[in-house]
Design a protein around this nucleic acid. Structure first.
Lengths: 204, 204
DNA sequence: AAATTATTTAAACATTTGTTTAGTTTTAAA
DNA sequence: TTTAAAACTAAACAAATGTTTAAATAATTT
């Protein structure tokens, strides 16, 4: 890993934990083990570094679901199941960065950044919407509110994992409980969301 | 409104929009139309002001749902309906502050503050959990995952209203669309969540 | 009315902030 | 091996940060 990437990785960690304005370039430099000036040397400014961080982390996960949507071998409800599993898998493997994106969305700062992030988050939402829409068109799903059903799927996953503390408190676990090292939780969240969608979507 | 309250109100606005570290005491002072020194005079420090802000805004909404839980005149599913309506009502009337709380929860800063906030948010979650638990005990609800079902209710509402931009994009609306002035949206979100819970909770 | 307390102010304080400079070392090309 | 570009450093920069000071004004009490 070169110095440029080291700075990005350190930034991801610190921005995720402490927010953009809560993190100083000197902290980043210290975490990365480089001179402070290297940040401006490589990225121009702290804000441009932030842009690169988001770009760097999201560039490799474009359009993963497009094949799933067009797959004709599995049923619509199985597509929903698979998508739920994938969304949870992603969330668990990238929890802190995901929080960073959502946090930035909730701020009324850097409109350009927010616009870029909303496009990224929208990809997931659109995939879910498409599958539900197809299911309705095919007559296997009830005519639910498509947009809000997608919101429910992503909202459930995101809300539970707002933070370790939130997750612990919601589930009534002790302080030591670490959501993201917990395979059972992944399964539990997956099962709940799938069951929820089945009863919501499938005709009786 | 005295000067102390003016400072708090200005802080709510700015903290909500720009985050705690994204807001300077001089901005707050300017917004409130007071001298910078008044912040430290009244509150001691910026961080203590933040604590007072949270205290001030949450003090008057304690235990609103306790009577609902114990109400024996209405059915369990009607309780769920009512609770959903109330949660949405609250969210719409206090959208920015709610975002502030959730944003703070997602940061790994100020553990004491986070602990206080999680207690506040937990009140809502616990109320939903209690009603669902009662419904299961009474045999009118299916034996769903109680904690995660509560998460779904709150997660759906919160996720849709992460920001104006998010809401617009999710719903496919134009930039001018303002979620929090929109009565239709309230109804739509309410209808979706109720329907979702009915199909999820009620026995077939 | 005088004395006391509370409120308000402008200015200064010490740090910290992001960024730049000017110079050095390292790397790679000619 | 010389030359030129890239990578890196310590130090300084100006601006912004939260906070405090000391003095002035306003309000309240005696």
């Amino acid at each position: 890993m070169n110095k440029r990437e080291t700075i990005i990785e350190s930034s991801i960690k610190l921005f995720s934990n402490k927010g953009f304005e809560g993190t100083s370039v000197r902290e980043i430099a210290a975490e990365a083990g480089v001179n402070v000036a290297m940040i401006n040397y490589y990225f121009g400014s702290k804000e441009k570094l932030f842009e690169k961080v988001v770009e760097y982390r999201t560039s490799f996960l474009r359009g993963v679901f497009s094949e799933l949507v067009n797959n004709k071998k599995i049923s619509q409800i199985e597509k929903v199941d698979f998508m739920i599993e994938q969304l949870i898998e992603r969330k668990f493997s990238d929890e802190k960065f995901s929080r960073l994106l959502h946090r930035e969305m909730s701020l009324e700062l850097r409109p350009q950044m927010r616009s870029a992030i909303s496009s990224i988050l929208l990809r997931n939402i659109d995939s879910v919407k498409t599958i539900i829409r197809d299911g309705i068109k095919d007559g296997v799903f009830q005519s639910v509110d498509i947009e809000l059903t997608a919101t429910t799927v992503l909202g459930t996953i995101h809300y539970l994992l707002t933070s370790d503390t939130m997750c612990q408190k919601i589930l009534g676990k002790k302080e030591g409980f670490s959501p993201f090292q917990n395979k059972q939780l992944k399964k539990r969240l997956s099962d709940h969301t799938k069951q929820l969608m089945r009863s919501h979507l499938l005709k009786k």
